[in-house]
Design a binder for these strands. Sequence first.
DNA 1: GCAAAAGTGTTCTCGTTACACCCATGC
DNA 2: GCATGGGTGTAACGAGAACACTTTTGC
Lengths: 233, 233
Amino acid sequence: MPFSKKTFYPEKNKLLLAVDCVIFGYNEGELKLLVFKREVDPLAGQWSLIGNIVSNEENLNDAAHRILKDITGLEEVFLEQLCSFGDMDRDSGARVVSVVYWSLIQSSKNQGFSIENHEAKWVPFDQVPDLVLDHNQMVETAITKLRDVARYRPIGFELLPEKFTLPQLLKVYEAIYQRPIDDRNFRKKILATGLLIKLDTKDKTTSKKGAFLYKFDSEKYQHLLKSGYWFEV
Amino acid sequence: MPFSKKTFYPEKNKLLLAVDCVIFGYNEGELKLLVFKREVDPLAGQWSLIGNIVSNEENLNDAAHRILKDITGLEEVFLEQLCSFGDMDRDSGARVVSVVYWSLIQSSKNQGFSIENHEAKWVPFDQVPDLVLDHNQMVETAITKLRDVARYRPIGFELLPEKFTLPQLLKVYEAIYQRPIDDRNFRKKILATGLLIKLDTKDKTTSKKGAFLYKFDSEKYQHLLKSGYWFEV
DNA sequence: GCAAAAGTGTTCTCGTTACACCCATGC
DNA sequence: GCATGGGTGTAACGAGAACACTTTTGC
């Protein structure tokens, strides 16, 4: 179902189901949040998360994936349900129950996709503007969740390209936790998981020496998960 | 809004909002789950979680509290949103989006309340029968959450009376994690939090010597939370 | 006096933290 | 040859795990 101004609030006094997405990216050493100029009334023109009504023929996860793909062109990304907001007066237009999803994407990958058809921008996650309705609460919940989950599940990779260097990964975690992390200890811990595959090639864009590229071994991770393994950063 | 057979599915093809509750208790040394004989079609007579439709004039949290109070008579209990299930075909009767809450109560306190008007029973959490729809998934999610949360928030108390002994509390945690916990280490850790108030009285129901009663210092806990404290069991 | 549960301290281990220098390279 | 970021090891510390005996009391 495309994003349509006319059908956004089909009827008053009806219960509507929506999905909103908190989309995190990482760029220029900073954790970023993707926000949009709302296109529909009420509150058109204000900043908001991206979201859409879920049709009667659509499942929640499918709707979340659809929205994310429409916006970023990405399909295989980290996207999970977060929580729901459904108070009766949260949206003045109708009673809308919003199931919130959160996502981690490589913010560079979405260039050239329809993110530019919508008015959208990446903002540093600690400088999020006032968003419509309860969207700022959604963001708060998502950041808390991100920090929580990043401690025991390997998700830093989701914000980087498939091949990345350890200094890059370190900076992602520093961006998430907003504090410096000791590089030697970080290397030890992250390599000790055995979940990184060291490649032969180096990335030389940030130094003359060059830093080795790594890949996340998601196959091994799946195996470990099945045998009860639990990652700890 | 009372639980009514007639109004449960007012219209076909309409979106309905429901709240379902995963209610944990503790009894006879075991973690228990409260399940109910479903009273409405479809699937009437089968075991399910307790839930109800959320009316247009009711917020989600309010609905959850209402349901819990209707069933157990309890108001001031641990009750938090867990997740939502909203796939289009999850309920054959209509499209019902269910926001799931989870709760920890003292299973002894609810005696004499309307839990007996409904056909309900406490079942050991690891012997949950087949429940209707996706309710078994809800329970799974809740147990995972309980174990997760119990590690870093003091919630074992919620399953015990206001005054409890350390051996009792230990048994609660053993029931949650399904493994023996060293009593000396447990005492050290739990007392080190400073969140337990030792009372002068002893509970002599389980031994001749008697065990000192304690109370959870929730006021102190609130203060600690505000100053960024984080409990770890 | 004995059975049954409550209560108590110390050692060992391992993971976390802190910390400073050499390496490779392009210019 | 030097500036820049990449890469490495060790010592100190603290939290968690393992472990066994004494205390109290009702019978």
